[in-house]
Simulated assay, not measured.
Amino acid sequence: MRAVTWHGRRDVRTETVDDPVIVKDQDVLVRVTSTAICGSDLHLYELLTPFMTSGDILGHEGMGVVEEVGSAVSSVRPGDRVVVPFNVACGHCDMCHAGLQSQCEVTQVSAFGTGAALLGYSKLYGSLAGAQAEFVRVPRAEYGLMKVGTDLPDERYLFLSDILPTAWQAVRYAGATAGSSVAVLGLGPVGQLTARVAVHLGARVYGVDPVAERRAMATRHGVTTFPGAEDARGPMRFDTGGRGPDAVIDAVGMEAHGSPVASAMQRAVEMLPTQAQERAMTSAGVDRTAALRAAVDLVSRGGTVSLAGVYAGMASPMPLMEMFDKQLTVRMGQCNVRRWTQDLMPLVEDPSDPLGLTDLVTHRLSLTRASEAYRVFQGKEEGCVKVVLDPSA
């Protein structure tokens, strides 16, 4: 089959690899009809290279049609149309019962002390082959796979795999309600959906992003936008009686612009031998925390900072004095995809498309053009907000 494989920093290729096969009785093989590039894929493309192996198959946002099922799978059968969650969870352990599927006790990657295994996301999370391919093997599929209808296009369902529940969780963690105020830092794919979810719930929503096309997209969905945090501070405080928004959601994460020292340290790590890079990342790695610091600065006293962007630094500095003084609540974590399925499916299937899911994808390319797609997405070129790859083209 054809698949998108990793070969080094900013080096991804579409290659012919072996087809996946059923390995365990709860496995399912899915023929992928649509697969997306996620913002967190760019961390593998640029920063988390010490944990990658040449030839790793990328991608954790996918959907398609069931081809083959393991002997213990009865929830789906060949021919069913399904969405593939990015995290692999058993559905039965205490963490899964608590709605923390990203911390599943059965699939945790003990070798690195990390949470539940993830599709296509390095040895830190289980070294599973990803969904940017013609076929993908889905472990623990009896619980994980989401069977969906056949009448709506893929783009209405695809984002249930990751970015839509990630956005929903971020807004829920932020405590957004009708009449509250929420700022979203970063208007990439997760930020766009985060802002729309908050608007849908009745909040007054501000968005911050330096890219004009991303601001324009958010504005279409009822978001007041600004190019930078400095531009936003005065107007947001004026609108909120001098306090600042009730919640700020950081949808940027560890590669934020405006963090020159951390950026230089990350480049220095890249120059080390591979094993030394891994040791440095797991003991002294730092993130670019400009977005996090902006969130702490902008949010109201007594407010909430919700982190949807991925952070991975073990030694990243935090403005703890300010956080303590402002008495902030901070919530974060990998999305618990299956926790939110029942909340989101009615919105996804609503004929009115209340979250504007048909207005997110800016680039649709063949799987064979993955290298170009990664470059354009990372560079924010051509007004790129969200890329979907078609394995059949």
Score class of each variant (00 low, 15 high):
S110V: 15
Y45D: 09
A117V: 03
Y45P: 01
E61S: 09
G64H: 12
T107E: 03
N87C: 07
V83R: 13
S122T: 13
L100P: 02
D94Q: 15
G62K: 08
E134Y: 12
G113A: 13
L48K: 00
Q132P: 00
L48M: 12
R77N: 09
S74P: 00
F86I: 04
L44P: 00
V106Q: 08
C38R: 04
V69S: 11
S71N: 13
M52P: 03
I57D: 00
P85F: 05
P78G: 14
L100S: 10
C96T: 08
R81K: 13
V82L: 10
G70L: 08
S122Y: 07
S54Y: 01
S40I: 08
G91Y: 07
L118S: 11
L48N: 10
G130C: 02
T49G: 02
A98I: 00
C38S: 09
R77D: 13
A89R: 10
V83D: 11
L124Y: 10
I37W: 09
G64L: 10
Y125H: 14
A72E: 14
F51D: 05
D56Y: 02
Q132E: 11
G91V: 04
S127E: 10
P78L: 10
R137K: 11
H60I: 13
G91N: 10
L58R: 06
T107D: 04
G59W: 14
S127H: 14
G62N: 02
A129W: 06
E134F: 06
G59Y: 14
F112P: 01
S54F: 01
Y121T: 12
L118Q: 14
N87M: 05
G115L: 08
R137P: 00
T53R: 15
G115A: 12
V88L: 01
Y45Q: 05
D94F: 07
C90P: 01
G120E: 03
G79C: 14
S75C: 02
R137D: 11
P78F: 05
L47F: 10
G62S: 12
E46F: 02
L119H: 09
G91K: 07
Q101C: 15
S102L: 03
L124A: 10
